[in-house]
Amino acid sequence: MYLEKFKLDGKTAVVTGGGQGIGLACVEALAEAGARVVIADRDAKAAEAARAEMGGKGYQTDVVDMDVTNSRRVSEVADQLASWFGKVDILVNNAGIARSETPAETVTDEHWLNVIDVNLNGTFWCCRAFGKHMLQAKAGTIVNVGSMSGFIVNKPQEQCYYNASKAAVHHLTKSLAAEWGARGVRVNAVAPTYIETPLNAFVKSNAKMYDAWIGGTPMARMGQVEEIASVVLFLASDAASLMTGSIVLVDGGYTCW
């Protein structure tokens, strides 16, 4: 009875930024559970490499070229995929950027707008475009990738723009959940700690920052992409059928201190 709830056979899922890191791990987790997964990424080379990797593991995936900051393109892709597959059951809004280590007083307009555009606007464009089809079908699940940075202020790196964008993603998640809950669409978010991805590779050469990150984490380590993907799978599945508007912290205990 219970394991059946995690299965996604016959479902179609879309993962933004699915070409690498957490996104690619989510692609694999959803595919392993039985979903047909579409890798939506603006990096065509990374997306094709991801598809090849998944194919090598026996999973069939599709690729679409999509920049989440281009609302028109996002709508086109949502309409196209709904036409191809009949419906999109699961959307994972993973695409995001950080551009950390810039103090607030020196942040340029371009820097601020770029991070907000990708992390917040891009998440909303995708929720809006795919959500319309889910609402028409009276069924669907959206999982947004937020961050523990939406709850706390990271140290020692300055990144007010990133923190603000992820806090906004969390409240957007709750707002959409409240609007769409009675109409069959669930919206939740996962809020990771520092994860070993290409985005965070730089920290290994910055001993002070690495020590601050690990020293502030009760579990005394960074997370792995599959540890986030596992939670995304749970939220996307019927195992989380009573959950909407939840922001699930997966932070190794970081926010305890």
Rank of each mutant, 00 (worst) to 15 (best):
residue 151 F to W: 12
residue 9 D to W: 09
residue 111 H to P: 08
residue 107 V to K: 11
residue 249 L to E: 15
residue 70 N to I: 07
residue 200 N to D: 03
residue 244 T to A: 09
residue 6 F to E: 05
residue 97 I to W: 10
residue 77 V to R: 00
residue 29 A to T: 11
residue 133 H to P: 04
residue 118 V to S: 05
residue 192 P to G: 12
residue 106 T to D: 13
residue 233 L to S: 06
residue 15 V to E: 05
residue 185 V to S: 08
residue 186 R to T: 08
residue 216 G to E: 00
residue 128 R to P: 04
residue 85 F to V: 05
residue 127 C to Q: 04
residue 1 M to I: 03
residue 107 V to N: 14
residue 152 I to N: 00
residue 140 G to Q: 04
residue 121 N to K: 15
residue 5 K to D: 15
residue 20 Q to G: 14
residue 205 S to K: 15
residue 104 A to R: 06
residue 63 V to I: 12
residue 89 D to N: 13
residue 201 A to W: 02
residue 150 G to F: 02
residue 34 G to A: 07
residue 199 L to H: 00
residue 44 A to C: 08
residue 62 D to T: 02
residue 246 S to Q: 13
residue 256 C to V: 14
residue 172 L to C: 01
residue 153 V to Q: 06
residue 243 M to V: 13
residue 25 A to H: 06
residue 200 N to C: 01
residue 208 K to M: 07
residue 101 E to Y: 05
residue 27 V to H: 00
residue 167 A to G: 11
residue 226 E to C: 12
residue 117 D to F: 01
residue 167 A to E: 01
residue 107 V to G: 03
residue 81 L to Q: 02
residue 206 N to R: 15
residue 12 T to D: 11
residue 255 T to C: 13
residue 178 A to N: 14
residue 246 S to L: 03
residue 65 D to P: 02
residue 43 D to F: 13
residue 200 N to K: 01
residue 234 F to L: 15
residue 27 V to M: 01
residue 36 R to H: 14
residue 153 V to K: 10
residue 215 G to S: 08
residue 215 G to Q: 05
residue 14 V to E: 07
residue 65 D to G: 03
residue 2 Y to L: 11
residue 52 A to R: 08
residue 57 K to A: 10
